[in-house]
Nucleic acid binder design. Sequence first.
DNA 1: TAACCAGGTTTCCTTTAGGTAACTCGATAA
DNA 2: TTATCGAGTTACCTAAAGGAAACCTGGTTA
Lengths: 116, 116
Amino acid sequence: MPLKVRKNQSPEPPQPCMLTHCMAVISGAWAANVIWSLRAGPRRFNELRTDIPPISAKVLSTRLTELEQRGVLSRNVQPTSPPSVEYALTELGGELVPALEAIVKVGHRLKMRDEG
Amino acid sequence: MPLKVRKNQSPEPPQPCMLTHCMAVISGAWAANVIWSLRAGPRRFNELRTDIPPISAKVLSTRLTELEQRGVLSRNVQPTSPPSVEYALTELGGELVPALEAIVKVGHRLKMRDEG
DNA sequence: TAACCAGGTTTCCTTTAGGTAACTCGATAA
DNA sequence: TTATCGAGTTACCTAAAGGAAACCTGGTTA
């Protein structure tokens, strides 16, 4: 007799599409780090590069464009000379911060486990 | 005069490596969905496949192996016939659930924004 | 007038993650 | 004895994401 596929025991139907949707936003290379870096305030392009040394200009640029399109951050050009460009989290972007905090917390435990 | 690179204003030094570390765990394809599916209790291989229809056996198998190695879930074989294999979150895995809940929450807001 | 800065873009290349599909294996049911 | 099931492997292929390095542009300053 074939095994029955048990109904998933969750109290309410889960929403995997929401999960997938949001994961798509934060799982691009360095996306989470960019958001994390912005959580304390606006940051310029080259500041982000020094915050996240291994990121290349190309990937940073790609990621910033993506995140802006998704409404997570805003880009605004300061009319200074030379003009500088500031990136900042939007309100929506700010809502990602608690999620990332939770992730960092688990990161700690994972590292403890890996190291001993 | 070159622009100064402002110090990042965060109150405490951020821990981007923790973030990267943990993101590595949950950002593989369908990894978050697998964990999400297990949050309500143990699940068998084929149950996970029906929970997450687009996942292929190969990727599911890869992901389960990875997640087990990282201590996020446990695998145990029930001596039934045919033997069935149950996957369940470990305590460490359980700590990822609040993070995923936070992510789902933002997923909702992202979707609202995209749709209307 | 040559070099430098900020903030990118472009080109090119490589890797690798992921998808498909076919196959395995031991046990059991028809 | 053939088919089915659960639980995976294995082989193969491809798209696309990411890295490196060079280049660009408009202004500035040495």
